[in-house]
Computed example of a mutant assay.
Amino acid sequence: MGLQLLVRALPLLLVFDRAAGNTTAAAIETFADFNTECKTCPHSLCPNTLYYSGGDIVNATCWTRGTRIVDTTLWLRSTSNCYVTEYDLTDNTTDYTSALPYCGRGSEDENLTLEDATLQYKTECRICPTIDCDTVAYLNEEKDVELTCWTPEGQMIIDDPYWMKTTNNCYVAQKNLYSKPDVTYLEPCGPIPFLEIATHFNENGTSEVDKRAAVPEPEPAVFTPSYLINVTVGEDYALCHSCAEETCSVETRYVFNQEVWLQCLVETNGTWWSETTDFCYVKNSDFWESPEGDYYRNPLCSYFEDPGSAPGDGDK
């Protein structure tokens, strides 16, 4: 009699196990269409467990709902126990909601670590932590940002390789913050692939912090933005003015061969100036290097004006 009761109870145990998200169904093999992140939860802001390169096999075990990526909120959990958006997979014909079990209600949770910070300089917020990646937003100095995770493997900015992911769903260099955040309160971002806005953007986010829109490249295209670049004074001295004109008051003076860090470029009546990290302007002709010629990666200061409307700005 005890054995009969156990046998009759087994189907119920399987049902409850599936409801908890512990599915045992066979995985469905599909492929990454391009570089894509496999996340700890099915939301754009969640840290990465790993990433798949274009063409890599992804074995999906169950489906769930998360951040809307272009036209789908469907995410799949892989055999690596992380989540990939359906949009980044080559197979767009399979009905995963019929072919696979639901991962469980708990799988939809967005578990984030958050920490407040303030930018010290004008900053490009990028889709991945290198200056070769697309700019999502141009953020002004003194702007408050909310950090979600950190990576020590970004591109070296001056002497610091640490970058922080923000709730703009893009990365800022730690060097651009007033102070280093306490990373003990933040999750590591995990492995991060090279991404492009053309194939990775969230058109209609399911929440404010997830929202990110594709943006056109700023004009003129010759200026592909970068972070702080350093140049050296090539004259006996270089005056740093309160605005990009010689009639403006002098804020500070740099001496011959002094290293100066620049934020962005301004053109005034055919003359190029650079805003330094002292928030004053020097004529580019006073430097050994030509920031608008030798360094093509310095952004125009106008990109940071009127946040939310500047070209390439993904800020609200």
Rank of each mutant, 00 (worst) to 15 (best):
K143C: 10
P129R: 08
Y227E: 12
E251N: 14
P152W: 03
E246F: 04
E219V: 10
G293Y: 07
D313V: 07
T36D: 07
N22F: 12
Y51A: 02
E246S: 11
A117T: 03
F16D: 13
G314M: 02
F34P: 06
N269Y: 12
R77G: 00
D210P: 00
T276K: 04
L6D: 13
H241L: 00
K39C: 01
T184R: 05
E37L: 13
E108P: 02
E153P: 00
S290A: 10
P191I: 06
N204L: 08
I28A: 04
A221L: 12
C133N: 05
Y295F: 14
N35A: 13
S98L: 12
T271G: 01
L14Y: 04
C62G: 10
D278A: 13
V255C: 03
T23V: 08
Y87H: 09
E246C: 02
T40E: 12
D160Y: 05
C264N: 01
V136G: 01
Q263C: 00
D144G: 12
W272T: 13
I192D: 05
P129A: 06
R297L: 03
A19K: 07
V266S: 12
R126T: 11
L12V: 14
D313Y: 01
S207M: 12
V209K: 04
L195P: 06
D236T: 11
Y83C: 02
K283M: 13
W163Y: 03
I229C: 07
E153S: 12
Y185S: 11
T49S: 11
T232Y: 09
Y281A: 02
D95V: 09
V172S: 04
Y296Q: 07
Y303N: 14
D286M: 02
R77W: 00
N81S: 10
F34D: 13
F279R: 02
G234F: 01
P161Y: 01
N204E: 14
K165S: 04
E235T: 11
V84Y: 10
I157S: 00
G312W: 00
E245A: 15
V183C: 02
I197A: 10
I57G: 01
D95R: 10
F31V: 11
L76F: 05
D91G: 05
P101M: 02
N22H: 15
S80G: 10
Q263S: 08
C189E: 01
S98K: 15
A99I: 07
L114Q: 12
E124F: 00
G234K: 05
C41H: 08
M1I: 09
E141H: 15
S285P: 01
T167K: 08
S242T: 14
G66R: 01
E235G: 03
K143A: 14
A214M: 11
E208F: 11
Y296E: 12
N269R: 09
W288G: 01
A9K: 08
E275K: 15
T24P: 01
T135N: 06
A310R: 08
C41I: 07
Q263N: 04
L186V: 08
